[in-house]
Amino acid sequence: MGEAARKRRVEGQWASPTTSLHVHESVEGADPGAVEGRRLSGPLQGFGKLWQKTYRVHLEGVAVSPEQVVAVWKADYGSFWPATSRFCAPFSGVTPGEVALISDRRGGLQLSTGVLVLYADEVSFTFLCPQGHPFAGMITFSAHVDGGHTVAQVQAIIRAQDPLIELSMPFYTHRQEDRVWQHVLSTLAARFGAPDAQVSAEAVCVDRKRQWRRAGNVRHNAGWYALMRPFRRRTSPPDA
């Protein structure tokens, strides 16, 4: 491999260094204010137990390469999401350094958050969560060959961001998370002509300890932000 190619391989696939997120585009239905200026929050910065959750779908009988799967996945990412949530990809697509906004309606509240595209190559891409996202951590989407066919995979290494989310994990948030990624992988498999492919799910608790020093993350909670939105608008106009 030449020096230029090596440098491109090493450096060209990561987001540029940043400590907080900045939204350059306005997207209908998503609140950029829920993301603007928020710090990034990796797997070490959250509150709850650390989980590694892996979801896979085997595209058996489909002649498609991992590169083709990931290219379509990146290009049409938002279209694979469940109808109850909205993923607003940046105009330039799933590209390292870009910020995507996410909106979700729960219990009458319009929740908004986002992700940074941390890393992307031909066979994978990774999102890193910011403060205010339900999870602290990274989610990697990838495809590889196993047993002679392509396997699409979502792997999340995440903690609940704050005590409220952690409290909801056993009876709601884990199931909700599973439903989202199972839907994404089923829809992706259907796009490639395998509508009946089964999605497997595996969850491993990597660290059972809760990080109590991170309990204050609750002040960035997306639900709290949504509840306070009307009050914030009255006291501090967006252009103030």
Partner: peptide
Amino acid sequence: LDYLNSGGIGLLVTLLVRAQR
């Protein structure tokens, strides 16, 4: 180190958790 991807970062997180334990 020649190359580290995002999956490699995940491995380092796991290693760190084990060390902390």
